[in-house]
Design a binder for these strands. Sequence first.
DNA 1: CAGCTGCTCTCTCTAAAGAGTGACGCGCGT
DNA 2: ACGCGCGTCACTCTTTAGAGAGAGCAGCTG
Lengths: 207, 207
Amino acid sequence: MRKGISVVLADDHPVVRDGLAAMINQQDDMEVVAEAGDGDEAIASYEQHHPDVLVLDLRMPKRDGVSVVQRVLEAHPKARILIMTTYDGDEDIFQCLSQGAKGYLLKDAPRQEILSAIRAVSQDRPYTSTTVAAKALQRMAKPSLTQRELDVLQLVAEGRSNKDIARRLSITEGTAKTHVKAILTKLDAISRTEAVAVAHKRGLIHL
Amino acid sequence: MRKGISVVLADDHPVVRDGLAAMINQQDDMEVVAEAGDGDEAIASYEQHHPDVLVLDLRMPKRDGVSVVQRVLEAHPKARILIMTTYDGDEDIFQCLSQGAKGYLLKDAPRQEILSAIRAVSQDRPYTSTTVAAKALQRMAKPSLTQRELDVLQLVAEGRSNKDIARRLSITEGTAKTHVKAILTKLDAISRTEAVAVAHKRGLIHL
DNA sequence: CAGCTGCTCTCTCTAAAGAGTGACGCGCGT
DNA sequence: ACGCGCGTCACTCTTTAGAGAGAGCAGCTG
């Protein structure tokens, strides 16, 4: 920690890592100590360096951001993690934040916002970009799906029929229909295809 | 052109622009002369600087990559454009390349590949990453959708019913069904929902 | 314990979706 | 002139989806 805040970057795009690293290393109060290109490397890097802040992309090969957050916080409850992703409306964000991630950023954020987010998180102050905060409020109002419904939704999104879904989940077709109906109601969709569109927009599923 | 290859960067993420700029300016045979954050800026920047290479993100606000390629090549048939995007399997790639873009890259490409792509394109040599080349061959084998079918597919993806689609396109429901059936056959899907999933994977539609 | 939620299952009924075929006009290139 | 692809439309028939309305059962909680 020669230079104040130590940072580990985890992102699968070399270009993005370079950009962040350049940005961070230009500051005189922070420094990148390691980079990771996938989820497993991210965990390993954290273990090795114990940085002040872990900047983490949500979408990565091998192991996605959500599970990295889980694993790291399990072992190090005081870890300070800043989530960064391309997409707003990603449902995973909320999962991360409720699991204890300290902040959340969109990749299209301006430089200054990124840097101040890192500084905030390094001092254990939560940082949430305004766009995300707004989304969070919107989300509150909307009904959330149960785990089982998410299971069904995933299969619906793959184009499976009710009968097929029933077989895969070892339930009857009638039950599958019940779940689908609940999904349609909660997502305010008329057809299963529209439900998939809505769910995708909200980041409930990843096609 | 004090430094060999002049480059204009167009990407909506400041982080990515920084990363690319840092990478490029470190080389002694190339230089970033301007950056753009959306499609319109990209066109304006090209007009102003006439760079040797325009590095262009496919997904941008206001005006997407495809239409930027169109506009720029219309005015400057000798423009050298390098397409860069996050997603493989994006149908728009092929549209760009067939319109005259000189190369195509994935954002998760290693630094060295990005640089050599820029050098290749600057000398008017086409550059196509191996992963994309492979996709292109796969795509050849698969049947392509007609424009009308794409229109219908878009509405299907929004969750519209056949009747609704017919109304919006001013055709009969029977005709809409015919199109949907053709889509299902070409995409090798059993249901419309699966068709949407397949189409999304292939980048035929953007949800 | 009583109430709540989530998951399961059953039943009926109507509206769509999809398979299978056939057909007609239009523009386009051989 | 002919074939061909495309878009349009029509018809039947089977399967699936979705609305509506209950109901039992586990687990959790005030």
